[in-house]
């Protein structure tokens, strides 16, 4: 039977597995809210994961690794922003190109890093709180980046819905001509949102190699970037809802391992399919639930040209 210890460790690792998803989902939410569709998450995440790992190995400082992983993500996002905002190219194609680019380049550069052990992020126990049974182990015995992700979700919620910047981002994604006519620089807003989104996705990737897996393997994102794209839809483009979605999918990921360990007689391959199957179900569900309040930003993926006739 499932005991309390098993449950605690399951939940704790769900959060660890969900944290990289949370970073990437939050990043893409900001990007998409401004009207830019970046399908390149998978490529940006893996680039962040590799860069983070390599920098940590070289410098001995995992924090520097996380930072550089984020910056690498930002760099790829800059490519996407340049193509989709300045050149007004097809955003889907540019995004898909980033996936291939990220996977390819990290596969090539990462060959010598397989099997290495880098300095990784340790959990930080929060005094007193971490002694609470179950909850303590689940919530208050995580690494700093996991705590930061939660705080970040709250901050992003605040920025989006309580500040001028948030209004400008949302307006740029919903009806850019309206934002422009009120003096908002739509291209600037979209650039900043896309770069910031890339930063978070890159950090999510770095977390994967420096805190979750604590090693580098080729293609280690294993479709997480795609799952995050679905999570953005699942969360209805709301940062606060992304928390639930990310941890839920983290949990599904972990469950397949844990159940394996307890000797449940289901094929490992079937178990590994679960997150992806759930992704499809979630997407189906979101399509059926066509409530406008949860819908995608109206101008998502559409380049903005001032004064264009409809």
């Amino acid at each position: 039977m499932i005991d309390i210890g098993f449950l605690a460790s399951l939940l704790a690792s769900s959060i660890r597995a969900g944290t990289p998803l949370l970073y990437a989902t939050l990043g893409e939410i900001i990007t998409e809210r401004s009207g830019v569709l970046n399908l390149g998450l998978e490529g940006i995440m893996i680039t962040g994961a590799f860069t983070g790992f390599a920098v940590s190995l070289a410098t001995g400082n995992p924090w520097l690794g996380v930072l550089c992983g984020g910056l690498a993500g930002m760099l790829l996002a800059l490519v996407h922003a340049f193509f989709s905002i300045t050149l007004k190219a097809n955003q889907s194609i540019t995004g898909l190109m980033l996936v291939l680019l990220g996977l390819g380049i990290t596969g090539f550069l990462g060959r010598n890093y397989i099997g290495e052990v880098a300095f990784y992020l340790d959990p930080v126990k929060i005094p007193i709180l971490s002694d609470i049974p179950l909850i303590g182990q689940v919530l208050f015995n995580q690494d700093p980046l996991a705590y930061l992700a939660l705080i970040l979700a709250a901050i992003l919620w605040f920025i989006l819905f309580r500040t001028r910047y948030g209004l400008e981002i949302i307006a740029a994604g919903e009806k850019p001509e309206a934002a422009d006519s009120m003096g908002v620089n739509v291209d600037k807003v979209r650039y900043i949102s896309t770069l910031f989104g890339g930063l978070l996705v890159g950090i999510g990737g770095a977390y994967l190699s420096l805190a979750y897996a604590k090693l580098w393997t080729e293609g280690m994102t294993a479709g997480r970037g795609w799952i995050c794209l679905a999570l953005v839809i699942f969360s209805g483009w709301m940062p606060q809802r992304a928390i639930l979605g990310a941890y839920l999918f983290g949990g599904l990921d972990v469950l397949s391992f844990k159940l394996q360990a307890t000797g449940v007689g289901i094929s490992y391959h079937l178990m590994k399919m679960v997150p992806y199957v759930v992704t499809i179900v979630v997407l189906l569900f979101s399509v059926i639930r066509k409530r406008a309040a949860f819908g995608a930003p109206a101008a998502l993926g559409i380049p903005y040209v001032r004064g264009r006739k409809e």
Binding site: T163, R164, Y165, L167, E168, I170, A171, E174, K175, E177, A178, A179, S181, M182, G183, V184, A292, A293, G295, A298
Partner: peptide
């Protein structure tokens, strides 16, 4: 030039710097 999914308040204030901006 109104953002359909925003409310009247948000549309009016869009792009405007109120005291204590942002």
């Amino acid at each position: 030039m109104l953002v359909p999914r925003m409310n009247v308040f948000q549309n009016i204030v869009l792009g405007y710097r109120t005291p204590h901006d942002p």
